[in-house]
Design a protein around this nucleic acid. Structure first.
Length: 559
RNA sequence: GGUCCCGUGGUGCAGUUUGGAGUGCACGCCGCCCUGUCAAGGCGGAGGUCGCGAGUUCAAAUCUCGUCGGGACCGCCA
């Protein structure tokens, strides 16, 4: 039916007779006997010169047969990949007519998103959307190649699964054969892949569908994909290397540029310096510890008699922040949980101007300037509070003060390692796992497991890109003695454990190898590549909340 | 479960603060003209329950309440 995709034609094709099929993107009529048709297919757009186009309308499906020729002198179009040539002497065959589209099929116009989702098949005709889907395919191809190259075996795990005792809320599917019983759709292949390790598969990966019945967010869908992997006989560094290889290859495939080494921060470093376990390293000031400045601890300023004092330096911020903006920043800090926000302007002579300056000694003021390395014209923001509050507030403020969009500027991947094993204590004083109950503690901290559990680090790790959590993983517990200690700490009896995790524990009794793994969120990874892209431009279909459920333009099934 | 914001021809917006005739702009659509355009251009035209429902008022796109839809965020997402 066709010989080429029109968008692929170049000067080298001049003279060829071609047949092209596609949609009428635009037409420009110049009287009865000259019209230009921009023909669009997956490869892009090419200009066809036809003898009259009065029967053609936007989005008609046509087959055009003609001859590739160079455009007349002076009429080339640098904005088009096909701009040097055109297809002339065209015969046009209308394969199908079309109603006017509900919104312009153009990258220039941001149409109503509801309409775009309802008519997703029209929305996906946009060049940008198709480009993103093509890029997504390039990314998954690169991921597969990287995993294959590292000796991983692709294995598909079941979708009709059983409940997992912890984690996200799961979708349930009624069973026809056992009325009253339900299948559960996996929130991740976590347990299945651990069983594959017990089975001796050694290195497994999958581009896995994950389904979570949780509330939606801008970057969150019920249904999403991840590169899921698990490997036996590996250390944490081995896992990080596997993932880095795949992610860097994918980035190169998507953008043409291979980032350098992925940086590494421990969780504590990330929290202290950036106030976040998913730091955006591109911009914004780091948090500076100010507590030690006040060695004498007996500062006369009550607000600074706190367990933790940190500041951030806003370069050149003195002039940019008048009282209104400072008040707004203070309100923002309070809404984030701080009791207040102390600001200090560095005056041309180097001394500090601040509402609280009179409560601080000269040494203290000088210490703040020295620690923050503040220069004249800078602004220093200080929060004093409990350590988690200080981190959270300043961590958010540094982003508020200048965070570029995720997909713009440089690409800063960073590993966050040594997460705490427990995130705190529950109402009964029992530690709460930060990851899951099968995460291996850091070997150096094992002897403190019972005596000081909150200080115990885990062998779990996250991959972060420009402030986005791209994925996470851990080394799993494979030894029964350590698992028993964890269950004891969590207050899970042997009977409880058997009831909740029985099939995994029983599998582990038949020879479980040391193993660990990772999962990379594919949608987030891909959305981070194109400039200005959002979630909805890299997904085939987008699911939104509430009624009527807008999926592919139809309601959910009812029974 | 909670907080805040937004609903105006097919699309994108202005109009809402301070109530006074569905008023305006751009795109698209329909018709006519046009032989080198490319977001073609010119002339003309059609297209509206201002999300929906109450209330206040002589009068509501505009004010109030409710409701539906959408968005952002918190909870939640091991």
């Amino acid at each position: 039916m066709r010989t080429d995709r029109g968008g692929d034609l170049r000067a080298g094709d001049v003279g060829r007779s071609v047949s092209l099929c596609g949609w009428v993107a635009r037409r420009r009529e110049h009287g009865e006997h000259l019209a230009f048709i921009d023909l669009r297919d997956r490869s892009g757009v090419v200009q066809c010169v036809v003898d009259g186009a009065s029967e053609l309308r936007s989005e008609f499906v046509v087959r055009i047969t003609g001859t590739v020729r160079p455009r007349p002198e002076g009429t080339a179009n640098d904005d088009l990949a096909t701009g040097e040539i055109e297809v002339g002497d065209c015969q046009v065959e209308v394969l199908n007519q079309a109603e006017p589209p509900p919104f312009p099929v153009s990258d220039r116009v941001d149409a109503d998103e509801t309409a775009r989702l309802r008519h997703r098949y029209v929305d996906l005709r946009r060049e940008r959307m198709q480009r993103n889907l093509v890029m997504r395919a390039a990314v998954t191809r690169a991921l597969r190649a990287a995993m294959d190259g590292q000796g991983f075996l692709e294995v598909e795990t079941p979708l009709l699964w059983v409940p997992t005792p912890e984690g996200a809320r799961e979708f349930v599917i009624p069973s026809r054969l056992q009325p009253g019983n339900f299948y559960v759709l996996p929130q991740s292949p976590q347990l299945a892949k651990q069983l594959l390790m017990v089975a001796g598969l050694d290195r497994y990966y999958q581009i896995a569908r994950c389904l979570r019945d949780e509330d939606l967010r801008a970057d969150r869908q019920f249904e999403f994909a991840q590169l899921d992997l698990e490997a036996s006989f590996v250390s944490q560094d081995d896992v990080l290397a596997f993932v880095a290889e795949a992610v860097l290859d994918a980035t190169e495939a998507a953008t043409g540029e291979r980032p350098g080494e992925i940086e590494r921060l421990t969780w504590t470093e990330a929290m202290e310096r950036f106030g976040s376990d998913k730091p955006d390293l591109r911009a914004g000031p780091e948090l500076v510890e100010l507590g030690p400045v006040f060695v004498f601890a007996a500062t006369g300023f009550k607000a600074f008699q706190a367990p933790c004092i940190k500041g951030i330096r806003v370069e050149g911020g003195s002039g940019d922040f008048g009282r209104n903006k400072l008040d707004a920043l203070t309100d923002r800090a309070k809404s984030l949980g701080a009791k207040g926000l102390v600001w200090m302007r560095v005056k041309p002579e180097g001394e500090l101007e601040s509402p609280v300056a009179k409560f601080l000694s000269a040494d203290e003021l000088a210490g703040i300037v020295a620690r923050t390395e503040a220069a004249p014209g800078d602004l220093v923001l200080v929060v004093a509070d409990e350590r988690p509050t200080v981190r959270a507030v300043l961590g958010q403020l540094r982003l508020d003060l200048g965070r570029p969009p995720v997909s713009e500027g440089e690409r800063r991947f960073v590993w966050i390692t040594e997460f705490p094993l427990f995130e705190g204590l529950d109402g009964d004083g029992r530690p709460v796992p930060a990851h899951h109950a099968f995460t291996m503690p850091h070997p150096d901290d094992l002897d403190r497991l019972e005596s000081d559990p909150l200080s115990v680090r885990s062998q779990s790790y996250d991959l972060v890109l420009n402030g986005w959590e791209l994925g996470s993983g851990s080394i799993r517990i494979h030894r029964a003695d350590i698992q028993s200690r964890i269950f004891a700490l969590l207050g899970i009896s042997e009977a409880d454990a058997e009831a909740r995790f029985g099939f995994l524990l029983s599998a582990f009794r038949y020879g479980a190898p040391p193993h660990g793994g990772f999962a990379v969120g594919l949608d987030r990874l891909v959305a981070g590549y194109p400039h200005g892209a959002g979630r909805n431009s890299v997904l085939l279909y987008v699911r939104r909340g509430a009624n009527p459920p807008l999926y592919i333009g139809v309601d959910l099934a009812r029974r």
